[in-house]
């Protein structure tokens, strides 16, 4: 559930006192119509708070923590686990690491590019899989009242409502902001992940673990692509006959 408009207004008057809504929108890049609509509905999206925080050089996680729903974010200072860090590395970056490690010395060319920024195409699902002990989905479902199939559908679509992301972190006992990184609401730096933590975690993976992980990701990717191709084929056949 998004943030109540009243609390948002209170927060906003603390962040940008005596500033017109128009100015806030201009500085933060939030569309005026979007904000107006959210205010009228009484529910302000978390992304709005994040955008405004960034515009006023406030840590978005800290800003979210001032709201009741996310108050837990303030006290949570658990660092990301190894598995979480690795889960937030894009599949292409994992594959590149495999190639770099297995290629003969000097054949990969100079200058290894850094990891692409979070989030990646399957970051949400990979993150939940990384922290799942087998019962996580049930616990999240029980804690939030969200039906397991709706939860799974969000993961498949690489989405997760911010509140659910925090609830998932809490149910898994990991840092509460991790889920917000995986969903792309905040960056890893904003969530307090140490700089280079993902790269370091990747470097600590053994060749065997890295290769197995890359293989798993490739297989999942292959399944998704094949499913998309089948759907596309079916759609084409419908059009061939009916259009």
């Amino acid at each position: 559930m998004p943030l109540p408009a009243k609390a948002f207004q209170r927060w906003l008057s603390g962040v940008a006192p005596d500033t017109s809504t128009a100015d806030i929108c201009r500085v933060s890049g939030v569309k005026r119509t979007t904000l107006a609509q959210q205010m009228v509905r009484g529910k302000v999206a978390e992304t709005t708070v994040v955008s405004i925080s960034r515009a006023y050089n406030i840590n978005p996680v800290a800003a979210l923590a001032t709201f009741d729903t996310y108050s837990g974010l303030a006290s949570s200072s658990l660092p990301p686990t190894e598995k979480e860090l690795v889960s937030q590395i894009a599949t292409v970056d994992l594959l590149r690491a495999v190639i770099v490690r297995t290629a003969p010395e000097g054949s990969t060319g100079p200058g290894q590019p850094g990891l692409s920024p979070t989030p990646h195409a399957t970051s949400v699902k990979n993150w939940v899989d990384a922290i799942d002990d087998g019962e996580l989905r049930h616990r999240v479902s029980a804690a939030t009242g969200v039906a397991p199939q709706n939860y799974s559908a969000q993961l498949t679509a690489n989405r997760l409502a911010p509140e659910l992301a925090v609830a998932t972190s809490r149910a898994a006992g990991v840092g509460l902001a991790s889920g917000l990184v995986a969903t792309g609401l905040v960056t890893e730096t904003e969530a307090g992940w140490p700089p280079g933590a993902r790269q370091a975690a990747l470097d600590r993976l053994s060749d065997g673990d890295l290769t197995a992980l890359a293989g798993e990701r490739l297989q999942a990717m292959g399944r998704t692509l094949r499913r998309q191709e089948q759907d596309q084929e079916q759609t084409e056949r419908i059009w061939e006959n009916l259009v």
């Binding site: 079916q234 056949r237 419908i238 059009w239 061939e240 006959n241 009916l242």
Partner: peptide, 8 residues
Amino acid sequence: VRVTKGFG
């Protein structure tokens, strides 16, 4: 005929 062909 078109529908059964199209929708497989």
